[in-house]
């Protein structure tokens, strides 16, 4: 088991944001979390990456408890994240953003260089804009940069928080095919999406969250054919 979350409880002040959430991700999988805004998807992601401290429960990464670790150490274990809203360093160039992505691996100069070439190969648009301030990129390009930046840390588990948010429909499709490619290269993916339909199409398994609780957990195929899921999240 790559990632295992057991009975996670998270509070924001008096608000109970996650109630006893349990979730598992096997190596090599794409797992998606779907649900409305405020359901707790982002909170789960943020707990895994150490930005939010759970009050109780545990998170195990490859058997190791990580819920008490600071965020920057979790990155070194091999968990990368493209955060919601992309959060690129818009006052720095595309290249500097990617370099910061490899912050934990600075001693491996040659490898980092190689990885950067790989990211540029995967996202040719970024190569074209290498020296540009990332704040001047379009939304789609910024999303690519956010994913590329996360990949620079050579994560074994990639957390993607709403990668398709606010992108034009044709860009949304290309983002999903990129996720599939990344997964094919051996990176396990945990994906949070509003776009439930697309997400379930590429995922192996899915979790449906509602008001801080896991409502359903099943294979994507089963979720896609589940009537209540179709009505509530797929808009049919």
């Amino acid at each position: 088991m790559m990632l295992q979350i057991r009975n996670l409880d998270v509070y924001y002040g008096a608000i109970h944001a996650l109630e006893s959430v349990s979730l598992e991700v096997e190596e090599g999988e794409i797992v998606t979390m779907i649900g409305a805004n405020g359901a707790g998807k982002s909170t789960t992601i943020r707990s895994i990456s150490g930005l939010v401290r759970p009050r109780s429960g545990e998170i195990l990464f490859e058997g190791k408890p990580i819920h008490t670790m600071p965020a920057h150490q979790i990155v070194t274990l091999g968990i990368g994240q493209s955060p919601e809203g992309r959060r690129v360093f818009s006052n720095m160039t595309v290249r500097e953003n990617l370099e910061l992505g490899a912050y934990t691996r600075a001693s491996h100069h040659a490898e980092v260089k190689q990885d950067m070439e790989k990211v540029f190969h995967q996202f040719p648009r970024l190569k074209e804009r290498e020296a540009q301030l990332s704040g001047t990129l379009s939304g789609g390009e910024q999303q690519m940069l956010a994913i590329g930046r996360a990949l620079m840390a050579r994560p074994r588990l990639l957390l993607l928080d709403e990668p398709s948010l606010g992108l034009a429909p044709f860009l949304v499709r290309s983002i999903f095919s990129i996720i599939r490619e990344i997964n094919a290269q051996g990176v396990t993916v945990l994906l949070v999406e509003q776009n439930a339909n697309q997400a379930l199409k590429i995922a192996n398994r899915g979790y449906v969250l509602e008001t801080g609780r896991v409502l359903l957990a099943d294979t994507s195929a089963n979720l896609l054919s589940n009537d209540s899921v179709r009505a509530a999240y797929l808009g049919e």
């Binding site: 409305a36 805004n37 509003q194 009505a231 509530a232 999240y233 797929l234």
Partner: peptide, 9 residues
């Protein structure tokens, strides 16, 4: 409608 589920939309 951002962030609403299909029913709410």
């Amino acid at each position: 409608a951002a962030g609403m589920n299909p029913q709410e939309k």
